[in-house]
Write a protein that binds this DNA or RNA. Sequence first.
DNA 1: TTGGTATATCGTAATATTACGATATACGGT
DNA 2: ACCGTATATCGTAATATTACGATATACCAA
Lengths: 108, 108
Amino acid sequence: MGATKTDQFTPRQNRIAKLAKAVGHPARVAIIEHLLKVDQCICGDIVSELPLAQPTVSQHLKELKNAGLIKGEVEGNSICYCLDHEAFKALDEYFSEVVSAKTSAECC
Amino acid sequence: MGATKTDQFTPRQNRIAKLAKAVGHPARVAIIEHLLKVDQCICGDIVSELPLAQPTVSQHLKELKNAGLIKGEVEGNSICYCLDHEAFKALDEYFSEVVSAKTSAECC
DNA sequence: TTGGTATATCGTAATATTACGATATACGGT
DNA sequence: ACCGTATATCGTAATATTACGATATACCAA
């Protein structure tokens, strides 16, 4: 026990969960924020922006990439990562749906 | 080591991460979906909708509540939980911002 | 008050995540 | 070829999450 029963849920549920999970760490939120701020692909400098050691940052980047939130490759002596717009759009659409489906029932 | 360094990040980063993390499990996405579908507070029946045992579902509900995504209380022999609209709005706004901040730089 | 039903909590095993030192890899400059 | 810089991977310790059986709690109905 302990492992998530991925196969028991729908592909959509798993996809949203995977994307949201990747956003579910402040370091990764900070990385996303930084990618937005520099308004272009990261070419170095991520580590110095975060209060974490270099291997830890690398690991977070790997998870963001694995979840499909960022894309890019290492280019020579620096990395070139940027946000994957499609993934964020999927999240945006999901939460828009939830918000707009607001029910009239407010018993709590 | 191993614990998230929460105090090293901004409150906003931590808040978004906390909310997103709570969505980051397919069982919890399924619970949210169910809450939307029944279009009202849950009055029983969550366990039978999910492929998980009752204590596990209860634990997931606790986490959703702890993160602020749902609110409600136990009422007699059934629970009365519903989505906390504000929390989802916060997520919606966050991802809208990210999506709309799409940069022209697309080097990857 | 006893029994049935519904949810929560406890305890705990299996697994996953987080963090980082040490080390590997890869490129650019000299 | 060698060095400095930048990123990735390995190994591993600390912690968190996930899942569920057993049990507790709370309510309603008869």
